[in-house]
């Protein structure tokens, strides 16, 4: 390989690599450095120590925010998988072939609204004077409006809504990739539909479900808007705490340290389910 041809090969990949290094890797480097500094008396001082990290784990309200993030992330992931799987199954096996694409597109249509708009829309539904409360009051199930908005439940509902759509899409894709021969073979060998599903279809789609579940967890834990709009400020999650550091106090060192903790949490989640997460070129 001559030097010239090697350059010829590189020059196609180079722009994207340079962009990623300049605007993704280098900023992360800046953030790591910033997390080792300190904001003292309104100025950011290069102190070079791990105090921000130590401080994080000694302050109960910050640890609580991390735990809230993890709890909400896990709850949302589990609920979303259980709600999405049957829907994906119905679309893949009960909807006639030529309507499947339409059924799927419909199932993920509201996916294409921004987080801000979608969360606001849920606020309309869950607020004190919202649809759910006025309906329940009208039919007399409750006497006082429920305080769903500004609680963890609203955050979870908003998230589950988004991720049911995402997971329906990924699980459907998985079900469709399965050759029908597996199910036929199982039926020939005398398995009923339930046993076929439990022993054949479910295990074969599990890797795809894991990928979807991992994505759900990661996006959930890193999101600021849904908890901010729907959850309010009674129970903060980690991204809310990070944004508070930036917005109210301009404490970039602290915000940077917390962001890196958030990244480490995601990395840990990745390592935990890495063996199911094989995203290869097909």
């Amino acid at each position: 390989m001559s030097a010239q041809s090697s350059w010829k090969r590189w020059r196609l990949v180079l722009p994207a690599l340079l962009w990623t290094v300049a605007f993704f890797i280098v900023p992360l480097g800046f953030m790591v450095v910033m997390s080792l500094w300190h904001r003292i008396g309104g100025k950011i001082v290069a102190t070079w120590n791990f105090e921000n990290y130590i401080e994080f784990f000694t302050k109960p309200h910050l640890v609580k925010a991390l735990l809230n993030s993890l709890e909400i992330g896990l709850t949302v992931t589990v609920i979303s998988i259980f709600l999405a799987y049957p829907l994906a199954w119905i679309i893949a096996y009960r909807v006639p072939e030529r309507w499947q694409r339409t059924a799927l597109l419909l199932a993920i249509l509201p996916f294409w609204t921004s987080y801000v708009v979608r969360s606001y829309a849920w606020l309309l539904v869950l607020a004190k004077q919202g649809i759910v409360n006025s309906f329940l009051l009208d039919i007399g199930i409750i006497a006082e409006p429920l305080a769903i908005a500004s609680s963890r439940y609203a955050t979870i509902i908003g998230f589950v809504h988004f991720f049911v759509m995402l997971l329906t899409l990924t699980i459907y894709a998985n079900l469709r990739q399965l050759s029908p021969n597996y199910a036929r073979a199982a039926a020939d060998l005398g398995a009923g539909p339930l046993r076929t599903f439990w022993h054949i279809i479910l295990p074969l789609t599990l890797p795809g479900v894991m990928v979807g579940g991992f994505l759900t967890f990661v996006l959930c834990v890193g999101d600021y808007i849904t908890p901010k709009i729907l959850g309010g400020s009674n129970e903060l999650v980690l991204p809310q705490v990070i944004m508070l550091q930036i917005g109210r106090r301009a404490d970039f060192p602290n915000a940077a340290a917390m962001s890196i903790i958030l990244m480490l949490v995601v990395t840990a989640a990745y390592v935990l389910c890495a063996r199911w997460l094989k995203m290869e070129r097909s």
Binding site: L17, T20, F23, F24, F30, M34, G222, I242, S259
Partner: peptide, 24 residues
């Protein structure tokens, strides 16, 4: 490694990408 580098931003939350750029 190149593939990993190119797809790495997918695994990091938008908040962190934005904050890193802001600091830089």
């Amino acid at each position: 490694l190149q593939r990993a580098l190119l797809t790495a931003p997918l695994t990091v939350s938008y908040l962190i990408i934005g904050l890193g750029l802001l600091i830089m």
